[in-house]
């Protein structure tokens, strides 16, 4: 088994808005070992989210290559990329992670639907997972009826619903108070303990201290920690 689960080769990403070109990434080489807990830090607007999106198959690089578990995903079709996101990668974003029309339970179940899980299993497993993060009494609550911390815990559970290898989080505690933040961090620590590969983009020094590896991004390149 290859112990590098995420690898990028000379990754470039240029956004073109009208005539303006933004070089968000300018040659990123990254290797993340399986089962590790890494943090991506760096100033705002320097390419952290962009890097995460490319690694998770949510966007395509302008140049360079991305490997997940040794398989190159750069040239995959949209459908194959979607399947990859459904089964092998879990995303958590900073805000509004949840589908607002659906309850906590349905949000988790929907993620399983895209991985082809039968409905009966969807229900049992989403209840089980929500219980693990202490949300058994919020199964039917809509996102608008949940606190920020509870919403993020649902989002984490949903990211894990299909038992992915990799959990990618973009400032998951960015808009939480310290109590909610520690709830979320506890959940993350537990996952890492279970062997998941966790990558968190954050400005939060506390999280960065806990991480095994800190990757510092500046001006679209990695300046420390690869």
């Amino acid at each position: 088994m290859n112990d590098t689960i995420i690898r990028t080769e000379n990754l470039h990403k240029t956004y073109t808005t009208g005539k303006v070109k933004t070089h968000a990434l300018r040659g990123v080489d990254l290797e993340i070992p399986r089962g590790s807990f890494s943090c991506i830090v760096g100033p705002s607007g320097h390419g952290k989210s962009t890097l995460m999106h490319l690694v998770g198959g949510l966007d395509r690089p302008t140049a360079g290559r991305v490997f997940i578990g040794g398989e190159e995903i750069t040239g995959l079709s949209g459908r194959r990329l979607a399947a990859l996101r459904a089964r092998r990668i879990g995303f958590v974003f900073q805000f509004f992670n949840l589908l607002p029309g659906l309850s906590a339970e349905e949000n988790v179940a929907t993620a399983m639907m895209f991985a082809g899980v039968p409905e009966k299993v969807q229900r049992d497993r989403s209840r089980e997972l929500l219980a693990l993060v202490g949300l058994s009494d919020k199964l039917r609550a809509k996102p608008s009826e949940l606190s920020g911390g509870q919403q993020q815990r649902v989002a984490i559970v949903r990211a894990l619903a299909n038992d992915p290898d990799i959990l990618l989080m973009d400032e998951p505690t960015g808009n939480l108070d310290s109590e909610s933040e520690s709830e979320v961090l506890a959940a993350v620590a537990k996952l890492h303990g279970e062997g998941k590969t966790v990558v968190i983009v954050t400005h939060n020094g506390e999280i960065a201290r806990r991480a095994e590896r800190v990757i510092r991004v500046k001006d679209g390149i990695i300046v420390e920690g690869y």
């Binding site: 949510l58 459908r79 979607a82 399947a83 996101r85 995303f91 974003f93 607002p100 993620a111």
Partner: peptide, 15 residues
């Protein structure tokens, strides 16, 4: 934004 979330959790364009 929901469309983005659906895509992030694995919905292909066809869906």
């Amino acid at each position: 934004r929901e469309i983005g979330i659906l895509q992030a959790i694995g919905a292909p364009r066809g869906t």
